[in-house]
Design a protein around this nucleic acid. Structure first.
Lengths: 205, 205
DNA sequence: TGTACATCAGTGAACGCGCGTTCACTGATGTAC
DNA sequence: TGTACATCAGTGAACGCGCGTTCACTGATGTAC
């Protein structure tokens, strides 16, 4: 549907997009290569012109996901004129927004079991995205008196874990559906309490 | 291998255990019914005497998992003579211990995409386990002045999300392997900071 | 502008394979007398 | 205690199916002259 090159036009990217749709619908292992080919309107054999197999297709989806993810986090973090705190909370919100807007990418990245060492590009893209979180945490930590300042990488791991947990448990259909709170509220309030525990904000708001 | 009943002995449970092993090794969708049967030393057709299909087999694994999980949480929480805080931290540690000791169960419960509404038994078992967390959070909340006390279910959701995030990102092989912190330390420090944010403990230890 | 040729993305047929599911069966165990 | 019968867990053969992967091919597009 893109700019039509030789025959199909942009089969490689079309396959990635079909894969993302299928991942979103049926999970990272819930579809076959043939199925992805068929839904793209192409013979299964055609896939091999672009990918060595299913795993490489998913790796490409994850790679693109990390790219978008890094951009969204960077964009959120860039607003740090306001305050380092606001920047971190914005990053948290960006995390959720990404998971919500790009569920296929999110699953490919974090639930497909793909290793970041699958390719150097993938490792680099992931490093870039997670680097943003680390920098946000590091900016924050700088305001805590050194003698009781936790390592920045620990703070960023906490925030990441909380965000990921909220996504997996409360922003999907599966088990936690029963929670009476919107995922956004849950994450925001959790981060606020956490930051207040670091002595970075007053307990109220 | 158990007490040998008619032919095999305890095929139903043997199948569940094979499934758990396979889930642990290859993920919840990474094996077939036939494979599970073969590894149990039995014809694929025999499985149908005990389960309607693959999904019911996994549901049974999840059900047993919730049972063990609830027991571990209850046991940890029962030690609340000490203090409500200690009880919550013990629950957090029990959460991690469960994920580590019963990885197959954990995956069946939280990553297999199974719905808690699959059966009333499953819903009940899950409710029992998560109820422990809610009660622990509720005991804690009681110590916070009402005007600035968050709902207990929100506190328990925060703790659960943090625990789950730590497990998924840092206690597995996949992406977060790079973290320089042990999952246990990460969770414990995260919970401590969070509780201090609730005004429940002094910032130092 | 037109023609001849090179490229290579996608085709379609073919293969062997393991899957899920069914079915009539068999034979070990439990039980009634 | 021994015998005859009932039960039903597990067998093994059978089926149709879609899978991944290969291969020689074809035909649309790009390019040299």
């Amino acid at each position: 549907m893109a700019k039509r090159g030789y025959h199909h036009g942009n089969l490689r990217q079309a396959l990635v997009e079909t894969a993302l749709k299928l991942i979103e619908e049926k999970g990272p292992t819930g579809f076959t290569l043939s199925e992805a080919a068929k839904q793209t309107g192409v013979t299964p054999a055609a896939v091999y012109r672009h990918f060595r197999g299913r795993e490489e297709l998913i790796a490409e989806a994850a790679l693109q996901g990390y790219g978008i993810f890094a951009e969204m986090l960077e964009h959120a973090h860039a607003r740090k004129q306001a305050s380092a705190l606001a920047a971190l909370e914005a990053a948290g919100r960006a995390y959720l927004a990404f998971a919500r807007e790009f569920p296929g990418h999110y699953v490919a990245m974090f639930e497909s079991g793909i290793s970041l060492n699958h390719s150097p590009e993938l490792a680099a893209a992931a490093g870039r995205a997670l680097g943003v979180l680390e920098r946000a945490a590091s900016d924050l930590s700088a305001r805590i008196p050194p003698q009781r300042r936790p390592p920045a990488s620990m703070v960023s791991a906490h925030i990441w874990a909380l965000s990921h947990g909220v996504v997996e448990l409360f922003a999907r259909g599966s088990p936690g559906t029963k929670s009476p709170f919107a995922p956004e509220d849950l994450l925001e309030s959790g981060i606020a309490i956490y930051l207040s525990g670091l002595g970075l904000i007053r307990p109220d708001e």
